[in-house]
């Protein structure tokens, strides 16, 4: 199964339009997100980066008065088709938000939450999952002896890595990140970035960021949005070194912000 998917893009956006009431937030976006790479969505604030990201796991649905047209294909299936099980779509993707939001429970239960709601009840199995995912997110050594302390007691940087572990625990194929380091100090940010570089061999990672340098450090593939429109997308080297559009050139030079 997995082998076949590696050739097709895991996320394929076709003619996507999103409206919030009268506001046309995304205008006819079509783009493929390549698998097992880090894709950065860049652009000035308010350009629809977060909306695009949240359209991938249908979290846009939660906004009031939202209307969506077009398709988002995840593993070849249009997730906006009627009758789609939204929870199954979401399970395929982990989410890291701007600020870490640990669930109101212990460190252990934060990681075990996902597997539990999907039916894993056995203690031994949960223990294994929790350890493995905390190791993967580089948090295990810091929390191994206080797994049952409230997650809110961790530092912000640790909380963000906990959120990463929590997302990994449902065995997603894709990790969605919405400016995941904007609330963190430089050292914690660096750690998260290191994790991403390590995880990209097994996951497709999409990062929304308004920090150009972060995009340059991390991204293999770049999508540039401006005022709800897709201006340009392509391999990172090309976008940063020789963009086709004048607008992109201005932005990566730092003239538009």
């Amino acid at each position: 199964m997995r082998g076949a998917m590696d050739h097709d893009p895991p996320i394929r956006v076709k003619n996507l339009n999103i409206y919030y009431g009268r506001e046309h937030a995304l205008k006819n976006i079509s783009v493929d997100i390549p698998g097992r790479t880090i894709t950065a969505i860049i652009g000035p604030s308010g350009c629809g980066k977060t909306t695009l990201l949240k359209s991938f796991n249908r979290l846009v649905d939660l906004a009031d008065g939202v209307a969506v047209s077009g398709e988002v294909l995840v593993d070849g299936e249009n997730i906006y088709a009627p009758g789609v099980d939204v929870t199954r779509v979401r399970k395929k993707m982990g989410l890291l938000s701007q600020k870490p939001y640990p669930l109101p429970m212990s460190i252990y239960n934060n990681v075990a939450y996902g597997p539990r709601i999907h039916g894993t009840k056995k203690r031994g199995e949960l223990d294994r999952i929790v350890e493995r995912r905390l190791r993967e997110s580089g948090l295990w050594d810091e929390v191994r002896d206080r797994l049952h302390a409230p997650a809110s007691k961790l530092s912000l940087g640790q909380q963000q890595r906990l959120c990463l572990a929590r997302g990994l625990a449902v065995e997603p194929e894709i990790i969605l990140c919405d400016e995941p380091t904007s609330a963190l100090d430089p050292v914690s940010s660096r750690r998260i970035e290191e994790r991403f570089r390590e995880l990209k061999s097994s996951y497709t990672i999409v990062v929304v960021t308004h920090i150009l340098r972060q995009a340059k450090r991390l991204a293999d593939y770049v999508i540039f949005l401006y005022l709800g429109e897709l201006v340009e997308h392509g391999p990172a080297g090309k976008i940063f070194e020789e963009p086709e559009q004048a607008m992109t050139r201005e932005y990566v030079k730092g003239s538009i912000s």
Binding site: L59, R90, K92
Partner: peptide, 21 residues
Amino acid sequence: NEVREASLALGATRWQTIRHV
């Protein structure tokens, strides 16, 4: 809302999110 999103993004149903989070 982000707390709800965190749970929903893991594939929890609305009710599971309400009850556990």
